[in-house]
Design a protein around this nucleic acid. Sequence first.
DNA 1: CCCATTCTTGTCACCTTTGACAAGAATGGG
DNA 2: CCCATTCTTGTCAAAGGTGACAAGAATGGG
Lengths: 200, 200
Amino acid sequence: MGCLMARAKIEDERKEQILKAFEACVIRHGLAKTTLQKVADEAGLPRSLVRYFVGNRDSMVDLLITRMIERGEATLADAQQAGRANTLGDLIDTVFDRTFGDETSNNVVGELWYLAQRDGAIRSRLAEMYGRITDALVTQMTIEEIGPDMAARQDAAHALLSLAYGEASFTDIGLSKPNSISTRQLADALVRELAGASEI
Amino acid sequence: MGCLMARAKIEDERKEQILKAFEACVIRHGLAKTTLQKVADEAGLPRSLVRYFVGNRDSMVDLLITRMIERGEATLADAQQAGRANTLGDLIDTVFDRTFGDETSNNVVGELWYLAQRDGAIRSRLAEMYGRITDALVTQMTIEEIGPDMAARQDAAHALLSLAYGEASFTDIGLSKPNSISTRQLADALVRELAGASEI
DNA sequence: CCCATTCTTGTCACCTTTGACAAGAATGGG
DNA sequence: CCCATTCTTGTCAAAGGTGACAAGAATGGG
């Protein structure tokens, strides 16, 4: 283990460059049709270099997933810590507008969701990601004493997530007007119902 | 055009056999990884025969889509005509339990949804399919005089569909308990809200 | 029996993607 | 300058999937 550094490592930057190109390709062509060559072209590198830095195609997918999950959790953490989500309403806004509102993320998450159908590892990581959001919602409900018990809050949080995901899915393929605020109203209706139930 | 029939056509049965195998393969491996060979193996036929009857891979996908849409519309028509869906509540039950409750259909629809992201033709056909459901919901709301106006009913129907699709998606990858009735409750909450709004 | 039509089999060349590797260029400490 | 380490290029064979087609078997009416 001599101390010869020989040459400065640019591995991290290259990986970043490649992942960025990978993401762009996935959005444009879909994950299934994204080949190493296309990623290489997008990044402006020869294919061999892509292989050298991210190796296997599978490991490239792994890196992309990690990237998406980190992004999603950062959004949530940011909203919570910056004091942006002081009320349940604020938190729901964040979930709808930022977590499920970013088209790029939704596009990639759509691909991951698709893979999750048959890949347990990806499924676990998605579950982890949405578990965090559920927890955040339940915690806030508890603080505001909305809902009769924890089970009801869990259920409600799950329903909210289903709604947000469904809406994002329809938007993703262009089947809902961008102006549609119906889902947000529906979410509010749920919260009111839940609040009413807790007052009994 | 002589009247020589020469040999009885078994085209329809073969197509059915092949499509059945195709569907099974799609569910098992996903559409992207379903090759003509796998379909042929599943159907117990040589690959050439698959090509002979359904031709191109694209045309096979087309046939599958038609199959799914017909299935979905048959479900809806059956519920409406059999007098099963007499009330809005019944209709919503049908949508949640049958249209979005069948695991096999959801699996295949998931694949189509994925393709729809980049294929306008598939997108149109999905839009048509969900348009039918939306219309059915809006019509029933109108009959029962629920909701203030048509726009609100459209919005509500869209929200209901988003919710049902989202829940189905979560269930599809195993992220929600099959016992969860929270989404159904949420749907009821929406209807109550809407009913309240129409009384103003 | 004959023949047109329909079905069935098997095989071939082509293309794309992948994985592997040899050979060389760049770089920074000793 | 020297050399280990790191990066870069280019090329090759293998695998898998697709489309096309020739050649033959089955079938029902004339």
